[in-house]
């Protein structure tokens, strides 16, 4: 695959992902340009045995967003999981980063109660604090915490039951 094909296939995904992370459209456009420059530079090194193309592109996109905030010394604006990546350069979770796992995650979430599912999505997808979720759902803080803990327990079982795929690792950029 050449960089032009990657651009055609992934440009919209990358722009939408970056746009959600940064406030200004101009910043998102600049970051997207950086991402495609990096993809062009790194494409000769890409090994499909080590990472699926989508995972590889996503990882470069994510790391470029992190670099953007790190350069501005603006880590307050980063979500917790991205802020964590500033400290860690090695990641072993790429074996679960594929569409199949996302589909299985959806199936696991459907087994939760409506309230557990809402708390898990609002906390881990939307990045809301439990206090924000209390305001958003009308549940008491104690109820939110209980739903979070019970939902998380089910998610732990789902993730621990996932067999690890060999050979994939996060690309360092």
């Amino acid at each position: 695959m050449d960089v032009e094909k990657i651009y055609l296939e992934y440009h919209d995904k990358i722009f939408r992902y970056v746009r959600e992370k940064v406030g200004l459209k101009e910043d998102a456009e600049d970051i997207c340009s950086d991402i495609f420059l990096k993809l062009q530079k790194k494409l000769p090194e890409y090994n499909s045995n080590k990472a699926a193309m989508s995972t590889w592109v996503y990882t470069i996109a994510r790391n470029t967003v992190i670099d953007f905030y790190r350069t501005r010394h603006d880590t307050d604006e980063l979500s917790d999981e991205l802020a964590g990546e500033l400290a860690s350069e090695y990641d072993t979770d790429s074996e679960i980063m594929d569409r199949e796992t996302l589909s299985e995650l959806a199936a696991a979430l459907r087994k939760l109660t409506d309230e557990e599912r809402a708390v898990i999505v609002l906390h881990y997808y939307d990045g809301l604090s439990l206090a924000d979720i209390e305001k958003r759902t009308g549940l008491s803080y104690g109820q939110v915490k209980l739903r979070h803990n019970s939902g998380l327990k089910s998610m732990k079982k789902f993730l621990s039951d996932k067999p690890a795929k060999k050979g994939f690792h996060i690309v360092k950029t």
Binding site: S54, T55, L82, T101
Partner: peptide, 8 residues
């Protein structure tokens, strides 16, 4: 995973 979902 949820962050990857924002991409995928």
């Amino acid at each position: 995973l949820f962050d990857y979902q924002k991409f995928e």
